[in-house]
Design a protein around this nucleic acid. Structure first.
Lengths: 212, 212
DNA sequence: TCGTGTTTCGGACTGTGGTCCGTTTACCCG
DNA sequence: CGGGTAAACGGACCACAGTCCGAAACACGA
C-alpha cells in the first residue's frame, strides 16, 4: 500500500534509461523530482551535517512538496540509504567483479579481509549518513538490500574457506564488527585508529576460519 | 546542562535510602513521581507494546505532567533503559557475585560462554524495549552504563583467558553478536532458534580464544 | 491538437518527542 | 510554626516526521 517504487528501483537512482519489460514507464516529472531530491539531500547533508537537515528543508531545497518527497522515498531512513546508493554500488561492484583481492581471484580468506578493510574505509567516509539511517528507523539498515548483499558475500566466502562453519551465523559475526554504531563508538568515543581496526579485523577473520 | 540526575542516579531506581555524602537529598515528591512514571511505563509497555506507547500516555497514566517526565529521564531511550534497570541489575549481580559458571569461580572461557547464554536469555525476554531504546536515540545503548559494565566484564574474561588478545577489540566482537538489532533479525526475520544462537555463540568464543 | 484516464504533485494537517518558564511545593532554619 | 529559597511541577509551546486528498501535470490515442 505504501511507497510506489519497487525495492530495486529505490536502491538504484539510475533513472535515465527507459525501463524494460511490463512495468509502466516512470513519468518524466517523477524522474526529474527524484533527481532533484537526491542531489538536494546530498548537498544539504554535506553542508550542514545529516542531523541538522529536516525533511522540510530537503523538500524546499529540491523545490518540491513534502508529499512528493515521502511518496518517492517512504521515510527518512530510506532517503538516507538512497543517498548512499552511489558509493555503495561502487563498493559492491568492486566486491563482485573488481580486481583481487577484493574481487574474485584471491583465496576466500584474503577476500574476506579485503572486504572488511574496504568496508571500514567506506564507513570512515560515510558513517554519518548510515548511522542516521540506522537510528531514525528501527532496523532500516539491517533489513536493507545492500546489507543483504554483503551478508551473502561474507557467507559465501566463509563457507568456501571452511565448510565446517555454521555459515549463516558466521556471516553475522563477520559483519557485526563492521556495524556503523560500533564503528563510531570505537573510532570516536574510544579513539581507536582506523589501521588498528583493520588489523584487528584481519585477526578476527583468521580466528574465525581456523579449524580447532 | 541537561537532565538533573547524575548517570548513577538515573540507572538505579532504588531511591529509598537517603543519599550519602554532599549531594542534596532528593525531594519526596520527586522520588514518588519517578516511581509512578516507572511503573506506569512498565505497565503500558507490557499492555500495548513499546512502540504503541507515547510519552504523553505515560505521563497521563502516571498522573504527572510531561515536563516532569522529561525532567527525570531526559528522553525516551533513557526511560526505556530505566524500565529495564531491574532485570538488568539482576543479571549484572549474577555476573559479578552469583554462582559459577556465570559468577566467579569457573574458568574465564566457561564464564564467557555462560555470560553469552544468560544475555541471550535476557534478550529473549526484553528485546522489545531494548530495541526501542536503541533506535529512538542514536547510540543510546552503546554508550549506556549497563553496556559498559558488560563490555568490561567480557574484556576482563578475555584478557584473562588469553593475554595475547587485543582485549578491547575482542570484547567488542564478543558483544556484537549479542546486539538487540541483530538478535531480533536472527530470531524473528530469519527464524533461528534460541538454542542455535547459544550453540553458535559458544563456538564463537572457542574460536576467539584459540591460539593460532 | 485535443480529450481523457491515470499518475504525481504539494501543502495543509496530525501526532509525537522534546523544551520552556511561570507557578507550586517541599525542605530547612530561625 | 512561619517565612524564604531552591527545586520540582505541569501544560502550553515548538519542530519535525509522516499522511491525505483536491488540484495539476503527464502520456497517449484519436
Amino acid at each position: 500500500m505504501y511507497p510506489d517504487y519497487s525495492p530495486r528501483k529505490m536502491m538504484s537512482n539510475t533513472m535515465d534509461l527507459p525501463v524494460i519489460g511490463s512495468e509502466p514507464r516512470e513519468r518524466a516529472d517523477a524522474a526529474r523530482n527524484r533527481r532533484r531530491i537526491l542531489t538536494a539531500a546530498q548537498r544539504l547533508f554535506a553542508e550542514r551535517g545529516v542531523e541538522c537537515v529536516s525533511m522540510d528543508a530537503i523538500a524546499a531545497e529540491a523545490g518540491v512538496g513534502k508529499g512528493t518527497l515521502f511518496r518517492r522515498f517512504g521515510d527518512r531512513a530510506s532517503l538516507a540509504l538512497a543517498v548512499l546508493d552511489e558509493s555503495d554500488r561502487a563498493l559492491q561492484d568492486a566486491m563482485i567483479s573488481g580486481p583481487p583481492p577484493l574481487g574474485p581471484g584471491a583465496p576466500p580468506r584474503e577476500r574476506l579481509i579485503a572486504f572488511g578493510h574496504a568496508w571500514l574505509d567506506w564507513l570512515e567516509a560515510n558513517h554519518a549518513i548510515l548511522l542516521n539511517a540506522e537510528t531514525t528507523s528501527a532496523g532500516a539498515w539491517i533489513r536493507s538490500e545492500p546489507r543483504a548483499v554483503r551478508w551473502l558475500h561474507a557467507r559465501t566466502l566463509l563457507a568456501d574457506a571452511n565448510p565446517e562453519l555454521d555459515a549463516d551465523y558466521a556471516a553475522d559475526v563477520a559483519l557485526a564488527p563492521l556495524d556503523a554504531q560500533l564503528f563510531c563508538h570505537q573510532r570516536f568515543a574510544r579513539g581507536m585508529q582506523l589501521e588498528r581496526l583493520k588489523d584487528a579485523y584481519e585477526e578476527l577473520v583468521c580466528r574465525l576460519l581456523a579449524s580447532p
